[in-house]
């Protein structure tokens, strides 16, 4: 892989799970060209990119498994049988052989050894865990428990739980800021964003957001905070420090997940109903293009890869 250093830096890629057609597609974000369409098991939801092992993972709650794809050749390498309903997924990018997956059915966090591709631990969390975020420097995991209206804070290396923090109603997506200081959780039934500080794990404030906020993410420069609202078909852009609203940006229909490029310049939004991806320019604060993609893109998690 290091042979690539002589070449110009490759553009980032968007990894899309297409729930209705059982594929994962990979799109070059510069050209909007589809680089690959990989047939996978039924109804993929969560996606994750593994930069250490050059893999893409997709979760399949309907089938109790995770698909493993080579991120360079786009060949399917195999499947990890987890049982239950694997949902949100995040890769430990610290170098430890860990992939973390929420299990919607068993109310658990699954720890998977990325080398042996086996489930090595199963930890109790709240009811119907959905989104998951990892602060790999601080070694903390944040899990949104959709039916218990809370976020569970776990250690990423030991089975220790630090806190269970009450959030808005039906938290689905969760994000942690790059500086590790704030955790953001979107409550899809009361249209709130709970902001949690990570010293004591207390709720700092609760922001009002759009209708049915299904997606939340932060920019790596710690400047922006974005919430994708499925009911109001828009993304609300906030200043990550002042928590003031900056803009409301119209996107496609029923947006589900939002991710930001590594340079913090662009955001990408999967529009589940209208089958497209909105590209947002974060300087201009508007949607600059919309790519038609395969049916029902979801991509729970960070779906932008290098």
């Amino acid at each position: 892989m290091l042979l690539l250093t002589a070449l110009p830096l490759a553009a980032e890629r968007a990894i899309l799970s297409h729930q209705a057609v059982d594929t994962v597609s990979v799109i070059d974000v510069e050209t909007a060209k589809t680089l690959a369409t990989v047939p996978v098991a039924a109804a993929p939801v969560g996606v994750a990119y593994d930069p250490l092992r050059h893999r893409i993972y997709s979760t399949h709650p309907e089938k109790g498994l995770i698909t493993v794809i080579d991120s360079e050749t786009y060949e399917k390498i195999g499947e990890i049988k987890t049982g239950g309903q694997p949902f949100g997924i995040v890769v430990d990018d610290s170098g430890k052989r860990q992939v973390f997956v929420t299990d919607w059915e068993r109310d658990a966090l699954l720890v998977i050894n990325a080398e042996s591709m086996l489930v090595v631990d199963l930890l109790a969390v709240g009811s119907k865990p959905a989104g998951i975020a990892l602060d790999s420097k601080a070694r903390r995991l944040y899990i949104a428990n959709r039916e218990s209206d809370s976020v569970t804070v776990l250690d990423a290396d030991t089975p220790d739980q630090y806190a269970e923090v009450k959030t808005g109603k039906a938290p689905y997506a969760v994000a942690v800021s790059e500086d590790g200081q704030q955790v953001f959780v979107a409550g899809i039934q009361d249209d709130t964003l709970t902001v949690i500080e990570t010293e004591e794990y207390t709720v700092k404030t609760t922001l009002k957001v759009g209708d049915k906020p299904y997606g939340v993410t932060t920019s790596q420069d710690n400047k922006h905070l974005l919430v994708a609202n499925q009911g109001s078909n828009d993304v609300w852009l906030f200043d990550q420090q002042s928590l003031k609203e900056i803009a409301r940006i119209k996107v496609g229909e029923m947006p589900e997940s939002v991710s930001v490029s590594a340079d913090s310049e662009h955001a990408y939004v999967t529009n589940w109903f209208s089958n497209d991806v909105s590209v947002i320019d974060l300087q201009q604060r508007k949607e600059t293009s919309r790519w038609p993609v395969a049916e029902a893109p979801r991509s729970l998690g960070n779906f932008i890869a290098d």
Binding site: Q19, P61, E62, Q85, F87, K128, A170, Q189, W272
Partner: peptide, 11 residues
């Protein structure tokens, strides 16, 4: 929100 809906994973 006080009602518990049986939401599934795949809409």
């Amino acid at each position: 929100t006080s009602l518990a809906f049986a939401h599934g994973p795949t809409p």
